[in-house]
Amino acid sequence: MAEFNAVLREKDNINIIDVKGFLDAHTAPDLENILTGLINESKFRVVVNFKELDYISSAGLGVFMAYIEQMRENNGDIKLAEMKTQVYNIFDLLGFPILYDILQTETEALNKFNQ
């Protein structure tokens, strides 16, 4: 069984999701549920902290593709932070860095919302 978990916390009105383990077609719905939950509560400012994420497949990337427009239309965004190289490389292969804010640290990602 793929190990994955996603924990939600809040800092300065920004919602931070800590993702851990393996994000694939089996586990992507867990993350999707958190994002749809935030949208339902009109919380559109999100930072995803990838520090403990070891693996991502396109099913995981798809979750970010599916919801970012809704967040942006509501003056929010999904900013991505603290990716391991092997995870960043997959985002990079598919051209995500041009369209998404991908930051080194969580603090930088949070600060981006205030720029």
Binding site: S57, S58, A59, L61, G62, V63, M65, A66, Y67, I68, E69, Q70, I90, L93, L94, G95, F96, L99
Partner: peptide, 23 residues
């Protein structure tokens, strides 16, 4: 895949085959 279009459409799939070919 056309990422800007997929994002606008809120599409969640369509990357797998392309990724396989790159890898």
């Amino acid at each position: 895949p056309d990422l800007p279009v997929y994002i606008k459409e809120g599409k969640r799939g369509g990357l797998g085959m392309h990724l396989m070919k790159i890898l």
